[in-house]
Amino acid sequence: MSTVIAELINKEDIRNYKIIDAPESHVSELRYKLQSAVRLGNEFKSKSVITFNTTSGPKRVETTVWMLTDSYLQLKNGIMIPLSSLLDLDY
């Protein structure tokens, strides 16, 4: 996956953006990283860098991933990022 240039934003600011689907789905190739990010967040309090698509262009946030569902990443304070919007994930 190529490196996406994205503006770094605060986790609390995610709600200020309209999140949209990525041009192509990266969920299957990111599945292992997603599961690892949850484990790192819950067991080691480690942060991940999540890059996702918005109507204002790609954004990235450095935060702890709390939970993974079939459709969303859940962050602290009930913030949800749709998996369909993911462009990249790193830790």
Rank of each mutant, 00 (worst) to 15 (best):
M1S: 11
S2P: 15
T3Q: 14
T3P: 09
V4M: 03
I5H: 11
I5W: 13
A6G: 06
E7C: 03
E7I: 02
L8Y: 07
L8W: 08
I9G: 07
N10P: 04
K11M: 10
K11P: 08
E12P: 04
E12R: 12
D13E: 06
D13T: 05
R15S: 15
R15E: 14
R15F: 10
Y17F: 07
Y17Q: 02
K18R: 12
K18M: 10
I19D: 03
D21T: 10
A22W: 01
P23G: 06
P23K: 05
E24H: 09
E24T: 11
S25E: 03
H26I: 04
V27S: 07
S28Y: 11
S28N: 11
Y32V: 15
Y32A: 15
L34V: 02
S36M: 15
S36Y: 13
S36C: 13
A37L: 03
V38D: 09
R39E: 10
G41F: 04
N42H: 07
N42P: 02
N42Q: 07
E43T: 08
F44S: 15
K45L: 12
K45C: 11
S46E: 15
S46H: 14
S48G: 01
V49R: 07
I50L: 07
T51L: 03
T51G: 04
N53V: 11
T54W: 10
T55Y: 05
S56T: 11
S56C: 12
P58H: 06
K59T: 11
K59N: 09
R60D: 03
R60C: 05
V61W: 00
V61N: 00
E62W: 05
T63H: 01
T63N: 03
T64M: 04
W66V: 14
T69E: 00
T69K: 00
Y72T: 03
Q74N: 13
Q74L: 13
K76Q: 08
K76H: 10
N77E: 15
G78K: 04
I79F: 02
I79S: 04
I79V: 09
M80C: 12
I81E: 01
P82C: 01
S84I: 12
S84F: 11
S84W: 09
S85Q: 02
L87S: 01
D88Q: 08
L89Y: 08
D90H: 07
Y91W: 10
Y91R: 09
